[in-house]
Each structure stands twice: as C-alpha cells, then as structure tokens.
Amino acid sequence: MDYGVSGTLAVHTADEEVSMSDITTVLGEGTVTVEFDESFYPKDAIYGAAYVFIDRCYVHLDRAGDKRVRVTLRAKSGKPADGEALAGELQNELLGQAWRLSIAAENRQLIESITSRALGGAAGPPGLDELLAMDIDEATAFDDPLGIAMSWEEKYKKKGAADEGADAPKADASASSDAAEPNAAGEKSS
C-alpha cells in the first residue's frame, strides 16, 4: 500500500526569486533556505525536523514574515551539501514529525499504558540501593520536611496540636524500604 502526499513545492536559485506557492526553497552558496507557512506544521515538528540536520549542517530558524517560518541549513565545513536534497529531506522530515505528533496524540492513552508498563516492569520496586543512595546521615536522618510523621492535628495546628517548637517528629526509616537486595530480583514468571 503506498501513500501519496500532495503539496506544493517550488525550487529556485538565489538569482531566480520567484513568487511562489506554500513552500519556498532558495539554494545559495553552501546554504539552502526553506520557507513555509507556520500553520502547516506544529512548532515541535519544526524543531524536531531541523534538529535532524545538526550533525551535517548549521541550522538557523527564523520568522520570515507574517506566519512564515524560515529554516536555513548551512553545510558544515568539509561536508559537501546537495541543497536540493537537503531541502527535500527537511520537508519530508517536517511531514514525518508532524504526522508522528498527531499519531502520538491520538494514541496517547495506549502509549502511556505501554510505556509505564515497560518502565515499571523493568525497573521494579525501589530497592535498598536507592535508599542507601539517599543523602541520609545522623543530622538528617530524622528530618521530616513533608510532615509525614506528624499527626493530622499537629500538621494543621488543630485542637490538641503540639506547641510550636515541639520535638521534631520521628520518622521510622526502616518502614520505607520496600525490598532488600535479594527480593528485588522480582517475582517468578510462568
């Protein structure tokens, strides 16, 4: 199954500035400039498409006028550039990026579900190593910046709450470790 993508494209040399359709491509000395209507592509798609070229080109983004965006690709030294091919590749990439954004938006729920399952399954529950990696010493071990160990009354200064300056709440560090090292290996699968 093949897809056809229709659009308007005009390629001109710098000497041959011709008024044009929706996309203008101007080939210069070692550069190619592509201008298009910004409403065609989401801004993230434009950034994404331009970014693909940073290994081969210096990339400049600019506004070319009312609702027009200009992307200039200048070949890095020692890297010969086929300006026409770069312009075509940029436009293909713009289309790909824009469509991908649209697909991702349509499938957001599915993607989030798969991603969270993939990351959750692979990473597993927090282990002892993460607890040990935390910045805990004698001076900070019993800090409770979120007031987790406080009673509701203490935290919100309700009736019966402890006076200001009362003893710091005690946190039970041992209760926060989900899994010791061997158990972090995960449950068995069938």
């Binding site: 790909g96 469509w99 991908r100 697909i103 499938n107 993607i111 798969i114 991603t115 993939a118």
Partner: peptide, 11 residues
C-alpha cells in the same frame, strides 16, 4: 528508546 519503538507511534 521505548517511545521510539512503539509501533503505534510510527508513521
């Protein structure tokens, strides 16, 4: 890598 390799994301 996960996001980029979910088929439903790819044109």
């Amino acid at each position: 890598l996960i996001l980029a390799s979910i088929r439903e994301v790819q044109p």
